[in-house]
Nucleic acid binder design. Sequence first.
DNA 1: CTCAGTTTGTTCCCACGTTCACAAACTCTT
DNA 2: AAGAGTTTGTGAACGTGGGAACAAACTGAG
Lengths: 219, 219
Amino acid sequence: MSPTRIPEATVARLPVYLRALNSLLDSDVRSCSSEELATAAGVNSAKLRKDLSHLGSYGTRGVGYDVEYLRYQISREIGLTQDWPVVIVGIGNLGHALANYSGFSSRGFRTVALLDADDSRTGELVAGLKIRSFDELTAIVHEHGVAIGVIATPAAAAQAVADQMVSAGIRSILNFAPMVLSVPDGVDVRMVDLSSELQILAYHEQRKSTLQPDDGVVA
Amino acid sequence: MSPTRIPEATVARLPVYLRALNSLLDSDVRSCSSEELATAAGVNSAKLRKDLSHLGSYGTRGVGYDVEYLRYQISREIGLTQDWPVVIVGIGNLGHALANYSGFSSRGFRTVALLDADDSRTGELVAGLKIRSFDELTAIVHEHGVAIGVIATPAAAAQAVADQMVSAGIRSILNFAPMVLSVPDGVDVRMVDLSSELQILAYHEQRKSTLQPDDGVVA
DNA sequence: CTCAGTTTGTTCCCACGTTCACAAACTCTT
DNA sequence: AAGAGTTTGTGAACGTGGGAACAAACTGAG
Ligand SMILES: NC(=O)c1ccc[n+]([C@@H]2O[C@H](COP(=O)([O-])OP(=O)(O)OC[C@H]3O[C@@H](n4cnc5c(N)ncnc54)[C@H](O)[C@@H]3O)[C@@H](O)[C@H]2O)c1
Ligand SMILES: NC(=O)c1ccc[n+]([C@@H]2O[C@H](COP(=O)([O-])OP(=O)(O)OC[C@H]3O[C@@H](n4cnc5c(N)ncnc54)[C@H](O)[C@@H]3O)[C@@H](O)[C@H]2O)c1
């Protein structure tokens, strides 16, 4: 199946290619060149071809790529052909937005439970799911075979929540709390830090203002 | 001040160091070694020292770093010693959460306006600000000198919103819509794509399940 | 079949980022 | 004052990623 390990930078771009392919399919485009797909994905065509070459040879020289076929191959490589049950912990402002986000379920991700430590929230209906007590985490993880957990609690609670997730068997965590989590080897944590993103923009903005016309990060 | 350009990878970690320093100050720690700070920030101590060396020599050999002083220097380098007015466009599920997020205002970022194209939302009070019409964008940008815009609209509207932002004078955009934005040179776009993050986790999760015990991305 | 045109997959090279290892510079004890 | 102990800042080695360029492999016309 996978001949070699796929570079991390490539893995991070596969979801972008997938979105571009879906967008092409919506426009009834059946086939495309690396140049077209690269433009749609906002990358260099050489980079795109090299990325795809890590998955295998799914194109035809002189012709291009079959959109449907390539989409399936990328989906399979990422693991989207299977179902991924997800638990969200901390149903405050952000947790509510995440629970209502259709972009998760549209891929293979299925939110199976919303958990919160605040008992006064328990029972509230959000996006068709009842908020349940955080104590039920382990039972829910075992029942649904949950492998991915989302943390949307305040920073102060994040490490404790992560510890509980790990001990319940979760091995992949998406963390929205502005807090560096410490987890055992074999557990993946990805951090989404909005405040950091703004600060990075501010740094570049400051340079743009004070220095000679410099190029930006572009997009 | 800044002798050379700071590597992009370093810039992306400065906010993390800043958080770690704030956390140390909260615990009344006045001074720390690169080892301690690196642990708090979740990175290698060699990497931390090299990162900091790009800003200047703010430590003392044999002693370590003065927490308060280093925090100020990093803040100044990022540009947090000045005020950054921000506009949020698209006050739906996510926009509401962002408007209510205190993590923005706690740094130098100040939300000056919430805009939405849906007139039925106009006037609604969110986090102490009234939702205003998207048409007011240019006037608001000029009035407050806004340089940073946040897009939280559906993907279909994102490019049009970005175009309006750019023509109004905004040169830094934080985009939450799952859509590759096309902007002129000199405009920075940072994309926060939650769906991609989940897919990356899924890829690694899949590999963990099917292959021999491999190491994860760690944290 | 042959040849011109097209587009992929890959190789080569360079730039960037990470880590090691150590000299330089500081503190503290004697 | 000198030497032992610490810790920073940096040079050098190494690994990863990006981009140009091109050979390989396809299509289609004549
Ligand atoms: N709101 C945003 O737009 C935004 C943006 C970026 C980051 N964040 C971060 O996301 C996190 C959540 O933000 P928010 O605005 O939704 O906060 P919030 O206070 O509205 O919600 C936090 C929720 O977590 C629950 N909680 C607290 N401790 C818990 C525990 N130990 N176990 C389970 N649940 C627990 C609380 O009951 C609450 O419902 C914060 O860390 C914040 O810094 C939020
Ligand atoms: N909800 C989440 O947790 C989440 C997570 C990740 C990404 N996103 C993305 O963030 C974006 C917003 O998500 P949401 O759940 O808040 O959607 P939403 O539908 O709840 O809100 C979108 C808002 O944008 C407004 N809008 C539409 N077109 C506009 C325009 N041209 N100008 C100004 N405003 C306009 C709408 O009136 C609405 O209020 C989407 O692109 C979504 O994919 C959301």
